[in-house]
Computed example of a mutant assay.
Amino acid sequence: MAIKITEECINCGACEPECPNNAIYEGGAQWAISDKTSVSGTFVLMDGTVVDVNQRFPALADDTYYIVPNKCTECQGFHEEPQCASVCPVDCCIPDTLYQETVEQLMAKKEALHP
């Protein structure tokens, strides 16, 4: 499953540079699949929607950092554990139960983001 940042976030920003998929954004910032990834063309979102990788989407949170589930792979294929959670000083990076994914699905997403 993806990781989410809870409302306990103190906006320290420690998590953002640790994400190998650039799935973490500052509150209020728009996001795109292509941000700091090597993907080009189109991308299939978790809900099956096909989007242009450069399409900008509205922020998922305005007041705290947030994680884009469509880009989060729980660091599978990069690290032993989610790096955001390992560096968070207030332990607000937790599993997001809304997005249940297998290791195989997470690895497939990683390969799609970094072809």
Rank of each mutant, 00 (worst) to 15 (best):
M1H: 14
A2W: 08
I3K: 15
K4P: 01
K4Q: 03
I5D: 01
I10Q: 01
I10W: 00
C12L: 08
C12K: 09
G13W: 05
P17W: 09
E18R: 15
P20C: 09
N21V: 03
N21K: 04
Y25T: 04
G27W: 01
G27M: 02
G28H: 02
G28F: 02
Q30I: 08
W31F: 01
I33W: 05
V39N: 03
S40T: 09
S40I: 10
F43G: 05
M46G: 11
T49N: 10
Q55P: 06
R56Q: 10
P58K: 14
A59C: 11
A61H: 03
D62S: 09
Y66W: 05
P69H: 02
N70Q: 10
K71D: 06
C72P: 06
T73R: 09
E74S: 14
Q76S: 12
Q76G: 10
Q76I: 05
G77I: 11
F78R: 13
P82N: 07
C84S: 03
C84H: 03
A85I: 09
S86I: 09
S86E: 00
C88S: 12
P89S: 00
D91S: 04
D91E: 07
D91W: 00
C92H: 09
C93H: 02
I94Y: 08
D96R: 11
L98C: 13
Y99N: 13
E101K: 15
T102F: 04
V103W: 13
V103T: 15
E104F: 13
M107E: 11
K109V: 13
K109I: 07
K109S: 04
E111Q: 14
A112I: 13
L113Y: 02
H114N: 12
